[in-house]
Simulated assay, not measured.
Amino acid sequence: MKQYRFWITGVMVLTLVFASSQVFSQVKYTLTPASEMKISGGSTLHDWDMTSNSAKGEGQFVMEGSQFKGIKSLRVQMEAETLKSGTRGLDNNAYKALDTKKHKDVVFTLKEITGSGSSYQAKGDFTVAGVTKPASFPVKMTQSGSNLTFEGSFDTKLTYFSIDPPTALMGTVKTRDEITISFKSIFQPSK
């Protein structure tokens, strides 16, 4: 009888361990080409946007069945010179200010995400022009099938990343220090 109870207890423990590993799983996700990163700012002449659809990223997402429950790790990287405004002069001034010859990438590494449903708070590190600084900002999440879309923005300053705001036309046009880094990141399970 004791052996029978020991055997039943062992089966129950194994069943619980197996069932709990099925409830929460970590799934590798990658950024889709439909994602968009944007830096917006202004100058004494006009406001401007620089957009890129060339970011790469991957993360380990915590899923319960097919439902999003959190993120264990996440890193998104974008070549700075893929940011385009539609004006070559503005782009060249931006690349010079970002020192893209030395610091090719803009990188975000997630440290923590909290919240539930569609509203989250992300904390992580942005690396811009070779300078890494902490960032915290709200994120909206939507799920469509197995794809997860994250949208958010981070208001900051060029000087936060030790970047001198660029000038043009012999200093008559001055870039404002304030910028917004915004994104619409669509992640899909890795194949």
Rank of each mutant, 00 (worst) to 15 (best):
K84T: 07
K72P: 07
Q77I: 10
M1Q: 08
P33G: 07
G89I: 14
T15F: 11
Q143H: 04
E64N: 12
Y95D: 02
T149I: 04
I181P: 00
F161R: 00
R75K: 14
I39A: 02
W7R: 13
F61K: 02
N92Y: 06
K102M: 13
K56I: 09
E79Y: 00
Q60L: 14
Q60H: 11
N147F: 08
T82F: 01
F137E: 12
Y4A: 14
T142F: 02
R75H: 07
G130Y: 02
K157Y: 10
A129K: 03
T180V: 15
I179C: 00
F183T: 00
A135F: 04
V106S: 00
W48D: 02
P138N: 15
R5K: 12
R75W: 08
V23I: 15
F154L: 14
A19C: 11
D164E: 13
P189F: 03
F161I: 01
G124P: 01
V106E: 03
Q77H: 06
V173T: 06
M12W: 09
A97E: 09
T167C: 05
K72S: 15
D47M: 14
V139F: 01
T149Y: 04
E81Q: 12
K28R: 13
D177V: 00
S185G: 05
N92I: 07
T51D: 05
E64S: 12
P166F: 04
Q3W: 07
E178P: 08
L148V: 15
Y160M: 10
F24M: 11
S146A: 14
K2S: 12
K123W: 11
T51I: 15
F161P: 00
R176S: 10
L158Y: 01
